[in-house]
Design a protein around this nucleic acid. Sequence first.
DNA 1: CTATCTGCAAACGTTTTGCAGATGT
DNA 2: ACATCTGCAAAACGTTTGCAGATAG
Lengths: 139, 139
Amino acid sequence: MPEKLTPHQRRVLEVLFSTPHEFSAQDLHKEFKKRQQRVGLATVYRALKVLQKCGKVQIRSLPNGEAVYSLASAHRHHLTCVSCGISIPLKNCPVHELEQELVQTQEFQVFYHTLEVFGLCQNCIEVDVLARRKGIRQA
Amino acid sequence: MPEKLTPHQRRVLEVLFSTPHEFSAQDLHKEFKKRQQRVGLATVYRALKVLQKCGKVQIRSLPNGEAVYSLASAHRHHLTCVSCGISIPLKNCPVHELEQELVQTQEFQVFYHTLEVFGLCQNCIEVDVLARRKGIRQA
DNA sequence: CTATCTGCAAACGTTTTGCAGATGT
DNA sequence: ACATCTGCAAAACGTTTGCAGATAG
């Protein structure tokens, strides 16, 4: 899907290219400030929306309600703790080979998939156990 | 994880049990109104948080920023259109068998996983093509 | 009596939108 | 000129929190 990008859309891609990290829209906005580039927050959101629609950028929603973005080609999955929200990246993707056959029967153009595993991280399990020992109910 | 539930937490579970649909917090709130049960919206959110933390309820974030909830045992995946946001449920889960081995190496208590595939639905592909023909840029 | 649970309203943070000005073809 | 892109500020939205009253052990 060869799409003509605006300068700011290109800049967003450049930032995402430059590091393996995921960025929230606000992170990107701060990053541009740091780079002395004047880019409005709204523009960041608008750019991200376009880049999502053409499959270049993928989104992941965190438990705290904010969304983080990365290159769709940077394929990562996570273990996410439903208690503290920590995300632990997985090393490999168990779905990739299955993706093609998975959607060949559907009329749908696939950009990317997200696989997220939810549960409790080691730390929160321990906190939970301690709390229960003290008879504390989780709020 | 045998957890004592409050009446309202129980009611939330009952609603989720009663249909195969996913509910947003606001949906649940409306549903209680319809059932003549006086339950505050904040209580719905608080109940959902507790139910997530004990692994009974799972969450899925929609592209529009709202979150929908369902029983963690109701296992469903979706094709989600990055353009219009429509969600098309998948019939089977390609990960289930892999889940166990996937996390045996991690110190993490697994409640559930979500696998979401993103791209364009048939309808939006057509709209896109038409728009491009007319030289319209996506906003 | 104490701790938890609840409803309401206010607060919060992220994202979206309206608009006027800048940009580029 | 024209349509698009942009920044700013205001608005919108889903969600969270503070608090006072209700409830339960």
